[in-house]
């Protein structure tokens, strides 16, 4: 049941090197990929670019062909109203279930809604989705991203 809310996220290993991000965006542009959500994590020497795109399979093969190190993860997304306390409510439910959030990132859509993407440890993905679903949080179906 909860599987239908699983969204494919791509992460790309990037050295901190001038022009490297540009090469990623160029590869995606050339493959006709639309980026729906993104987040960048960085350390002193390298970074990880995380993307949710409209066509993960195609994006992945284009990036691999371009020589990038790409990995795929299962994440999920929720839609909340764009107002104080809505993010808190989601985090509270997850904390209540003792679920660790590896990372999360958000984007504000074209309405009064915000979309939050969550990565939790692999073993607790189903549990997280079920908990949020049963407590009335609106989960976003992958089709929303994929189009």
């Amino acid at each position: 049941m909860s599987r239908k809310y699983v969204v494919k996220q791509l992460s790309i290993f990037l050295e901190n090197r001038k022009g490297r991000l540009l090469e990623v965006t160029e590869t995606l542009k050339d493959a006709g990929i639309n980026i729906r959500a993104l987040a960048m994590a960085e350390s002193a020497e390298f970074g990880i670019l995380r993307l949710v795109v409209n066509n993960p399979e195609k994006a992945r093969s284009a990036l691999s062909a371009g020589g990038f190190t790409v990995a795929e993860q299962d994440v999920f997304a929720v839609e909340v109203s764009d107002e104080p306390g809505s993010f808190h409510k989601v985090v509270q439910i997850l904390a209540g279930e003792d679920i660790n959030v590896d990372y999360t990132y958000a984007f504000v859509g074209n309405s009064s809604k915000a979309v939050l993407v969550f990565k939790v440890s692999e073993g607790s993905l189903d549990k997280a989705i079920s908990a949020l679903d049963s407590q009335g949080i609106k989960l976003v179906e992958p089709m929303f991203f994929y189009e």
Binding site: F13, F46, R50, T69, V70, K119
Partner: peptide, 15 residues
């Protein structure tokens, strides 16, 4: 070189 076997999605794991 970080290849797809080595690459774990997480700064912490790589560190």
């Amino acid at each position: 070189e970080v290849d797809e076997q080595t690459f774990a999605d997480g700064i912490g794991k790589l560190e």
